[in-house]
Design a protein around this nucleic acid. Structure first.
Lengths: 343, 343
DNA sequence: CTGAAAGCGCTTACAG
DNA sequence: CTGAAAGCGCTTACAG
């Protein structure tokens, strides 16, 4: 397949020096006479030398590889996160292996194990539950790990998230201020810090505005795609139907659109709707979903930044936690004026 | 950081055999007495042995790593492709490093080089132009490469694509059959086989239905996001405005929605619209974009399958080319009945 | 079925 | 500024 791919040794022979000198010259460590350095570089170029990074990794204990584990790479949210990570990683010459766990703890465990065997320098994890023994162990061993968009219970380790509590509070408050009193909520699994905190923000807003928390207005689903649809079905079937729905993610909101469409209920005329995440389609002129911006790209970028500093070990007892501000994005799906006219 | 991570040698000492025997026992090559195999496995487990895959890669010349280069991983299309690749790769114990080239040939070149140094076993490339010297070289050297969604000029090498010509023909024909005569088209860079072939299908359909090809109806853009928007602006400003627009991708169609919305032109009442790709949002009840399905997941999955067979070198003179059938997905954005009523 | 030898292509840690 | 030695943790290729 390959003809030869020259090695350090061969360059050394051609330049009549030791391979150590070639190594130094090519990796600009300094400590090589300028004249011989130039000569070596020239020869390396002529022979089309390329370093074997696997050999380098074996001895240096640094693979320059990092593992990213997300629930599903084809999900917009994680794809954008991945891009933020990639761009920042490239600045440092590091590359990313992605794995999709489908939110299955067993997959997460297997992938982490395998990636350790592959010798990755660290992990970026966007797919962990509040309790995840294998991750907690990694964190405790001080292996470089950064959580993104999720927290471990007890807030152990490093992470970058947005303030989900606050974001949910803002959304709920907005719905209330638009004149809604009966606010349904569709939320994912409470094993995730995100869902739990958003739920908290929703409760707090209701209570601050002296609105009752009715448990029939709360639909607790899974990660599955159809949670939004199922939840909306349930909420719309209630005798005392909510006048607004807070979907725990824009993807859930998609399901709500479908369910309302089927039922002949109009958004926002008949019912208000808000999401969470600000995925690309939410901004579409035909959809105009009110939502909370997550700054996924930034999360990825900052997440990698933190991971890298951890790997480099610049600080001992390294801990870095970033909580980004959520941003409320008001679009027409729960517009005040439209709804007022209809009452 | 790590306390010790036991090596083969240590297992060997503990089991009182050679490391060769341990290697064989653990990698179930056979050729080890069942009794000693069991003993070794037990010891390895007790000592929590994990193979160092970097060392293995160095000597075996197989990293079990594959490089995926796409224009942009956060683009829905490529994210879904990535998932198809990942799932199939995992079946064979192979992992994927992704890179986003932003469609810049220079990036592509650099990433390929770097990935060669990393010792990847092969490439899946979704970001190549018709002429791409570095890729052509790789193909010619018989290094494992599979193109996905793109072809090299002269159809060199292995690839999996859909029949873009046919897909575009179907879309154009559909628009014609809906009663449209003046069909505008917004297309990406002609350096890409996809754009070129779709353009071909459009031309052929027009000619088969004896419709003239007017060059003012053809907007040739770039990959940029705003090509759809700009193209629509241009087409809508024509004195003899098209009655239908074929957007070369669903993403371009998004821009068309925006431009028509701004201009107060309704889809499909005032103008018909069709896309290409069948991205997730196209199916939304509020959008209903007529489009062509690309089967991205399958493309990825089959692409990896081909690559793997290439890597394994099961066949000599390996060539594998797959052309998937496009599927027309008719939704309301160019519905016949609606448009008829308005004329 | 088992093992001793050699080596993958580098870098680390010393010496000079 | 330069080099000889040792070794990273495995597997390949022989021998027995």
């Amino acid at each position: 397949m390959k003809n030869k791919a020259p090695t350090l040794k061969e360059i050394a022979k051609a330049a009549d020096v030791s391979s150590m000198t070639v190594s130094r010259a090519l990796n600009r460590d300094g400590g090589v006479r300028e004249e011989t350095r130039k000569r070596i570089v020239k020869i390396a170029e002529k022979l089309n030398y390329h370093p074997n990074r696997i050999a380098r990794a074996l001895v240096s204990k640094r693979s320059n590889l990092v593992s990213l584990i997300v629930p599903d790479i084809k999900n917009q949210f994680f794809a954008e996160l991945a891009r933020g990570i990639e761009d920042k990683a490239r600045e440092y010459g590091i590359h990313v292996i992605y794995s999709s766990s489908d939110n299955k703890p067993e997959n997460l465990k297997n992938y982490i194990r395998y990636m350790m065997e592959m010798g990755v320098d660290g992990f970026i994890l966007a797919s962990v539950r509040l309790r995840e023994p294998i991750v907690e162990e990694l964190v405790q061993q001080r292996f470089p790990v950064v959580l993104v968009n999720r927290k471990l219970s007890g807030e152990k380790g490093n992470y970058v998230v947005i303030d989900n509590f606050k974001g949910a509070y803002m959304i709920t408050e907005h719905l209330i201020k638009c004149g809604n009193r009966k606010i349904g909520i569709i939320m994912g699994s409470s094993e995730m810090s995100t869902a739990r905190e958003r739920m908290g923000g929703y409760r707090k807003a209701l209570s601050d505005y002296s609105l009752p928390l009715k448990k029939e207005y709360v639909f607790q689903g899974t990660f599955a795609r159809d949670t939004g649809y199922k939840g909306a079905k349930r909420l719309l079937a209630l005798k005392d139907r909510p006048d607004a729905i807070f979907a725990g993610s824009d993807h859930f909101a998609l399901g709500v659109f479908d369910a309302t469409y089927e039922a002949g209920i109009k958004i926002p005329e008949d019912i208000a709707l808000a999401g969470f995440d600000d995925t690309e389609f939410s901004a579409h002129t035909r959809i105009g979903l009110t939502t909370v911006s997550q700054r996924k790209y930034e999360m990825g970028s900052m997440g990698f930044q933190i991971l890298f500093r951890f790997i480099e070990g610049e600080e001992k007892d390294f801990v870095n936690r970033i909580v980004l501000e959520p941003r409320l994005i008001i679009r027409k799906s729960c517009g005040y004026s439209m709804r007022k006219n209809n009452k």
